[in-house]
Design a protein around this nucleic acid. Structure first.
Lengths: 152, 152
DNA sequence: TCCTTAATAAGAACTATTCTTATTAAAGTA
DNA sequence: TACTTTAATAAGAATAGTTCTTATTAAGGA
């Protein structure tokens, strides 16, 4: 049974509200709009993109609020920053464990989900360095779309 | 038989010279010094750190040369950029395949080498996204040193 | 409804990096 | 070895992404 996108989004917004209350953080309109913008995108948007979209609905929103809010959403564990070597930070609101394929041509980020039962095996001596908080597999390459363009 | 550090460094500098010649790039003093600085460090230094060190031997070296040279060394496949979520890019001259443990407290980067015979298993559907050029496993956590500090 | 203060808007400031331009030096040639 | 060409450099200005400062607003408890 496939969950409706709006239902999913509403659920996540409710989670955000609860998380805010738990942390004594206020549930502001900006926080909700910015979170929704990340949560409904599958493009792993950067701050500027989020700013442009949110501004359409909230014309007075400031760039600073975007950055500040993204940082607070990160602290609340509602979104995370996707590792990349580009100057702009990119964000992802899908907190289910997954990895990423980054295209070195178009900078698109694709999600890689493990198949059921599949599990990422860590290097044997990974734990000797300290307490592991987060594991991230980045696969860099040229995506199918770009490969097609090159062929032409 | 453990290879002497200086021997290793000289070997790598020779590789750099060959790579430059192959690409029609000039073997400049700056290129060599900057490369050596990255190659002899195990701290995955950032551009500023490299600049400060190189400046001791070449007082007139410019910040721009550091960045430009690091980019050209990257193109020559003599160094690479370590993924991280911090504002400063960090560099690694060890091109043997390995992964990283990043401490979220002190920002130290530790190398994780696979044991002989060990191999990183990629997600089954990783290849469906395109041609893979590079695979990178980042493990984020709190390093032993920082854990000790916290205990005290 | 009022009050407290966390969160915000606006724009200045900052930091890492890149660009511009005149100068230097690598390396091929005479 | 000196000469020539031009890639690479130094210096500092410029830019891009992000963060800070301060006055104002609004969330949410009283």
């Amino acid at each position: 049974m496939i969950k409706d996108k709006d239902v999913y989004l509403n659920e996540r917004v409710e989670q955000l509200k609860l998380a805010c209350q738990k942390q004594g953080m206020r549930v502001t309109q900006q926080r909700i709009e910015i979170f929704k913008e990340v949560a409904k995108s599958c493009a792993h948007p950067d701050a500027e993109t989020i700013y442009e979209s949110v501004k359409e609905r909230m014309p007075n929103v400031s760039v600073d609020t975007i950055y500040r809010t993204l940082a607070s959403l990160e602290e609340l564990n509602m979104i995370f920053r996707v590792d990349n070597q580009l100057p702009k930070a990119r964000f992802d609101a899908d907190m289910t464990p997954h990895h990423h394929f980054l295209c070195i041509k178009c900078n698109e980020v694709y999600d890689i989900f493990l198949e059921p039962g599949e599990e990422l095996v860590l290097p044997k001596n990974a734990e000797q360095y300290g307490t592991i908080k987060d594991v991230n597999l980045q696969i860099r390459g040229i995506c199918k779309k770009c490969l097609e363009k090159i062929e032409k």
